[in-house]
Amino acid sequence: MTPLEILVAAATGQPAPRIPVFCNLLDQGARELGLSQKDYYARGENGAEAQLKMLARYGHDNVWSLSYVGVEAEILGCREILFDDEGSPNVADFVIKRYDDIAKLEVPADITTHPAWQRTATCMKVLRDEVGATHAICAYITASTTLPAILMGMEKWMELLMTGPVDLRDELLRKCSDFCAQELAAYRAAGANVLVYSTPFGTTGFVGMKRFLEWSLPWMKMDLAPGGVDGIVYYCGMAPFNNVIDIVRTELGIGVYYISPLADLAEAKALLGDRALTCGVIDDIKMIHWTPDQTRAEVKRMIDIGKPGGHFLFGTGVMPLAVPEANIRAMLDASFEYGRLP
């Protein structure tokens, strides 16, 4: 079976030789090609080349479209990204500096014509041509309730959300939701088949249950309504969300859940059962300091929890550049070994 068929089998509860294994090696691409992060992210071809090289070496099941969170901000007018060879790029110029800027914020009529999207499109085309038929191609899409944090900074967004004018807040959210729906459609059209919907406000760790129900949930529905939930992965930026899994499953119908390493994986698996794909996510920040043996032991622990009953995927979180190569290898070797199915 191809990795893509293994993924589909896990999602639908069909027989497969092993569980799917996802590994996010996005920032590692610069090192792979011997480039600075800035040069690496400047060309779409780089992202594809690096992803394919690492895929050949490690044998995991997925690749990523060339992406960093700031790309979304760039399409919406951000003029400066802070690159750092030690880690992920960072938005350095907020599009919304004052509340007045919300009215001026324009969502392009077609985001795929924007220069910042062209790098992504180039990367996606190479990946689709090379491995689109056999592997999962992942894309990262920020939810409307979180996108303002990239456009104005989390501090100012929290201030607007909690104490600012409601009409202004909703005007911004409408624009962000429009952008989100467009981005989802653009990634689907470009060949992405795993759409990681990043929604930290979709957990009660960011807002309380009342606000989650009355505010987060309706905006998530609006983001996802135009294109549906096929291929959507519910991801809360590594924050736990077990307590809302049932609600999200019922209200949004999403079929894949990326469980925080801080959450109780057994509880999440029990909650989802065979109704959805549970993704167990290793704490890859601890992997910076673990030994390969400690890494293997954690992989085993997680797969022992998730594998029984199927509908389980093993995955990583942010995969910091500081994670040693030996631990990446130990994690993947262990996940293939312990993830074998009868």
Partner: peptide
């Protein structure tokens, strides 16, 4: 409280 959240932290301090 497992339901304590970032919004509460922000507003408490504010």
């Amino acid at each position: 409280d497992p339901d304590a959240n970032l919004a509460q932290h922000f507003m408490t301090a504010q």
